[in-house]
Structure formats: C-alpha cells, structure tokens
Design a protein around this nucleic acid. Structure first.
Length: 573
RNA sequence: GCGCCAGUAGCGCAAUGGAUAGCGCAUCGGUCUUCGGAACCGAGUGUUGGGGGUUCGAGUCCCUCCUGGCGUGCCA
C-alpha cells in the first residue's frame, strides 16, 4: 500500500528525467536499515549517467520535486544519502489514516487488481488409483496458496486438478482385478482392495517381464475403447476420486475443475493432425515429433505404436482451456524434473500461435529425508501422504499436551489436526520453492522460528488480550483513535501497511514464501511492540484503545495472511 | 556428452541489482515480581564453491572451472 502510493507520487516526477519511468519504479524499496528511513529510491544513480550528471546532484533535484509534490503529507522527510539514495520517512498522521481505513475494511484495505487476469492454476495432479505420497504435497500446498492469494487480489483463478486418471496404473489394476481380486474385500472396502491389487501387481511386474507386458496390453485396451476395460475403469474411478477427496478435505484444498487426462482422450488424434497441418510435427523413426531449433531431442506426440503421450494431452488441455476460459496465464505447479518437458511444450504452444498467453512452470524441488536423499520410509518405500498427515497430527497433539494448559480437552483433537497440518503446509510454503528441502517434524512443529506453530501462537496470544480485557475489537474500532507514540508502535505500523506489497511480491514470481516471510517479520515486530508497550495497562484509556487497535489489526493481518497460505488460526492452543 | 537447477555461518534456511549479507536452531550473556515465558534484548560466528567480467553498485546478471542433484527419443 505504501509502495503503490509512493509510485503514484513519484511517477510524474520521473517523467522529468526519463521517458520510461516504469523501469525505475522498480527501484523503490523498503530501507533495509531503519536508520535510513522507511523507504528508499535508488534511481538517481542509474539516471545520472544518461543525464550526464552527478548522482547526488540528480537526487538533490528530485528531492525538491518530491517535496513540492508531497501535498497530502505522505512524507515527513526526504533525504539524499550515500552515492545518491533518496530516503523517505513516512508521516505518522498519514500512516494513521491508512491504518484506520484498514481497520474498518473487511479485506484490510487490500486493493483489488486494476486489471483482473484470468489465470488457470494447474496443481496437485496426482495419479489416481494409487495412494497419494509425499511427492504430492508440494504441488498441492504451494499451488493452493497461490490460488488463494491470486484470488484475493481480485483475479479470476481456475484451480484445475489435472489428474493422472488414464495411465498405466489402470492397466495394472485391471490386470490385478482379472487375476487376483477379492470380491468380498472390494464390496466391503473398495479403495484398500484396489490399493492392494496395485501393490501386488507392482511387485509381480518387477519380477516378471510377462506380467509387465500383460499390464501394458490392458492399458492399451482401455485406451482403444475396449468395452470390458472401459467399464472397469468407470467402476473404479468414483472410488479413486473419493479417496483423494478425503485427503483434500483434510488439507482444506478444493478445486474448481477436476479434468483429468481421460477427459482429453478424444481430442488427441486432432492434436497430432493439427501439429502436422501447421508443419510443426513430422515423423521420425516411426514416431510423430515436434523438433525445435537448437535442441537435440524432440517432443514426441505420438509413439510408433500409435499411442499418445502426455505432451499430446498437455497440448489438448491448453487448446481446451483456451476455448473455454480464454486465460491470460496458465501456471503449472509441477516438480522441477519436468522442466525440459515444459520448455518444449511452451515453445510448441507459442509456435501454434498463442503468443499472448503466459505459460509458467512454477517448479519446485524435492522433499528429502534427514539423510539428504529423497524422503523414503525405513524400508525404502515412498512415504504415504495420509501417514504423513497422521504423524504430523500425532506430534502436534504431543506438543500441545506438553505445553498447553489452556486448551479444553474436547477441542484437543480438532486443534491438533489443525496445528499438525498447518505445520506441514507452512514448512513447505515458507521455503524457497526452487530448492530441495529436508523434511523434519521437529522443525516444522518448533515453537520458535518461522513455523506455523509460532505464527498460530502469536495470533492466539494477541487474541487473548481481548479475552482477558473483556473487550471486543468492534467496540474499540468504533470509539478509538489510533496514535503512534512509541518507536515500536511505529515500526509495527509500517509493517502492517506492507501487507499489500507482500501479497503482490509473492505472486510476482509465484513465490508464496515471500508472504510467510512477511508474516514472520510482522509477528516479530509485534513481539517487540508487545514487550515495550503495555496494552491493557497503558497509562491512559486512549492509549490503551489505540494499542488495542494495533493488536486487532496485527491479529487480522496474520489471520488473513495465514488463510491465504491455506492455514487456519485457532483462538487457543 | 548435452541441458536444467543448486552451492550463503557448525546445522537448517532467507535476501524485487543497492548502503554494514540476514533469520531460526545451537552457544554465551542480560532483562522482566509474565496484559499466555512457547517472551524480549544483546554477543560471536561468513574470502556468499573458485576465478574472471558487466555495473556507480553483484549473493543476485554474463563467461569459465569445481562439486552435488535432476533430466536427457517413444513413462508421467
């Protein structure tokens, strides 16, 4: 919020110095050291060269222009420092106005995007018919956070779970069904029986090449429309969907569309034909391929046996999305290992003529175990997602039992569910998505540091002030005036006003960890404020009320921010 | 071989091209007769893998080398 207002102030002034002010507005940042001021502009140094002047001279001239334009009293001071930095100090009264507006607004005065974009967010996308595992957590959690933030910022966002519902795992299950099924077990509990068949066949395939071949044949039959296999697929799918939905409910993740690979099956021959017609694809060693300038390997869209591949499905999916949604952007929250696939896919789509469509592979690294190898169970199996959630919840419960005396027994289970899953999500989101990360229950449930548990605790602590004082935030908001009397109050106020820009920064390159870092910084500033500024025991009633306003706005900002990361707060923990 | 990503303090990590590279854990010290001590304040720890370059300014951009991970023609 501060930044956008500063931009509005500076934009016309920059025109005096350059024809392209936009590229310089990016050089407007918060001061990393408060002694310099609140915000700083770094453009005088780069402008100086083209103007043939000394940077400090340019900064000095700009300072005069800025002070002249500062008619609404936004700035209390502008200083030229160092090689030509312009340091801004915000006016307290101006901040109080903005904060008061945020207090009275149910979205904390975060503006809605001027130009809403239509954005398709392709995330989670597990293969159904086999249990979800640890590998699905990052896409699901990061994707859902981006979904929530973009939507909150006023964009039209379509969350699409592009299920792997048409792959070789169905050949395996169909083969298992035909040879090893237990009808009673299936009648009693279909999903475990299908899982059992999947695991059984998986084992047998690894040992016996003939069985592997038989499974491939079952998949081929399914794809070519074989009545029996298709009917089995239709019989299994509802149970598969029910299974993953249970996990999504626990994670509080919900999609607008769940259009899996099977949905695009009919369109695949048309895709290959289209690529051939446009001269983009040609036959090579019996397969149909798209070749790219400067790239050795092609993207294969049809195998020599006539079968289609995921590249084909992806193109069909993009065409469908263009027809139905006309999106401005499609984001794929997918493992970094598929980066080459997406490079080729995107290049191909641009050659098809969709130049204005933003296509982004929002990639992320691998979840590692404590041994720095991909996270596996002791026996070497992949870690099931549900087991992971259960373990996080069990540990959260232990942590609560040990530390909390303030939690009613009847809500312990629910609170532990919340805390455990929040910890798991936050550990993932708060990390730079590019890097691999080491999975650790102890670290994610730590009470200190940048964890969900710490953030949730900070929230509960703020709220407890109101409970303790027997005061409702609404009552204070309606009667009180905000005042900034102490440096810690002021520091908190500046941070509160940065919420909007934290949200914007986190979607600029699709990095939700920017938001979690902001929230953590906010919580720290609150802690400092809380230590040095008595609230309920403030010297005067007016000061107490003013501080209660800061408390309420902090609590709401934390709560709103966490919600945008897919994390719920609790009143007590 | 080629391509992509990463390499930052003992450990785990952060840092839209900006000033003295930060945070947590761990270590040491301090504060307060707790508005929930699961607190706050402070200290030390670094040739940002090596070397070159661009720039007024580089952890960040470019080149090169080293190390590790991943991907590399018919899985997704």
């Amino acid at each position: 919020m501060i930044r956008s207002q500063l931009e509005t102030l500076l934009h016309p002034i920059l025109f005096k110095y350059t024809d392209a002010p936009e590229q310089f507005l990016g050089m407007l940042t918060r001061c990393n050291d408060p002694k310099f001021g609140d915000y700083q502009a770094n453009f005088a140094m780069s402008l100086a060269k083209s103007l043939g002047k000394n940077p400090r001279e340019v900064a000095g001239a700009m300072r005069e222009d800025i002070l002249a334009a500062n008619t609404d009293g936004m700035l209390a001071g502008v200083e030229v420092a160092g090689p030509g930095f312009l340091n801004f100090t915000l006016n307290d009264a101006w901040m109080v106005n903005l904060l008061s507006a945020a207090l009275k607004n149910d979205r904390l005065a975060v503006p809605v995007a001027d130009v809403p974009r239509t954005i398709i967010l392709d995330y989670s996308s597990p293969n159904v018919a086999k249990p979800m595992h640890v590998g699905h957590i990052r896409s699901t959690v990061i994707g859902n956070a981006l979904y929530r933030i973009l939507k909150f910022l006023g964009h039209r966002v379509i969350g699409d779970n592009h299920l792997g519902d048409w792959g070789t795992q169905f050949g395996m299950i169909i083969y298992g069904w035909k040879h090893f099924r237990d009808d009673d077990a299936f009648a009693a509990a279909p999903v475990p029986e299908l899982s059992r068949l999947y695991r059984l066949v998986r084992e047998k395939m690894d040992a016996d090449e003939q069985i592997a071949d038989a499974c491939r044949k079952e998949t081929e039959r399914l794809h070519s429309g074989d009545a029996e296999n298709l009917s089995l697929w239709k019989q299994f799918m509802p149970f598969c969907l029910e299974e993953i939905d249970r996990v999504y409910d626990r994670l509080d993740v919900h999609f607008d569309e769940t259009l899996g690979e099977s949905f695009y099956n009919d369109r695949l021959p048309g895709v290959v034909q289209m690529l051939k017609d446009k001269g983009l694809a040609r036959e090579s060693n019996g397969a149909v391929c798209v070749f790219f300038e400067g790239r050795e390997n092609p993207m294969i869209v049809q195998k020599k046996d006539g079968a289609y591949l995921y590249a084909t499905t992806d193109i069909a999916t993009i065409e469908y999305r263009m027809e139905r949604f006309s999106p401005d952007a499609i984001l794929y929250v997918v493992d970094h290992r598929q980066s080459e696939h997406f490079e080729m896919l995107f290049q191909c789509v641009r050659m098809m003529g969709y130049e204005n469509l933003e296509l982004r592979h929002v990639s992320f690294g691998t979840v590692l175990g404590e041994d720095r190898r991909p996270f596996k169970t002791r026996s070497g199996d992949t870690v099931g997602l549900e087991g992971l959630l259960d373990e996080a919840v069990a540990r959260a419960k232990a942590v609560l039992a040990e530390n909390s005396s303030d939690i009613p027994p009847e809500t312990l289970e629910e609170t532990a569910q919340n805390i455990g899953i929040a910890a798991l999500k936050y550990a993932d989101i708060s990390q730079n998505r590019d890097s691999d990360y080491i999975f650790s229950y102890d670290k994610m449930l730590a009470m200190n540091g940048n964890t969900a548990t710490y953030m949730q605790y900070a929230y509960a602590r703020v709220r407890s002030i109101f409970t303790k004082g027997g005061i409702t935030p609404e009552a204070v908001i309606s009667r009180a005036e905000l005042q900034l009397t102490h440096p810690a109050e002021r520091a908190l106020a500046v941070e509160l006003l940065r919420f909007t820009e934290a949200l914007e920064a986190s979607v600029k390159d699709y990095r939700p960890n920017f938001l979690s870092a902001y929230l953590y910084e906010l919580a720290n500033r609150y802690s400092t404020f809380f230590e040095s500024c008595p609230v309920l025991r403030a010297e005067t009633e007016a000061l107490r009320d003013s501080r209660l306003l800061l408390c309420d706005l902090t609590a709401r900002t934390i709560s709103q921010g966490l919600e945008l990361l897919g994390i719920r707060t609790v009143q007590r923990m």
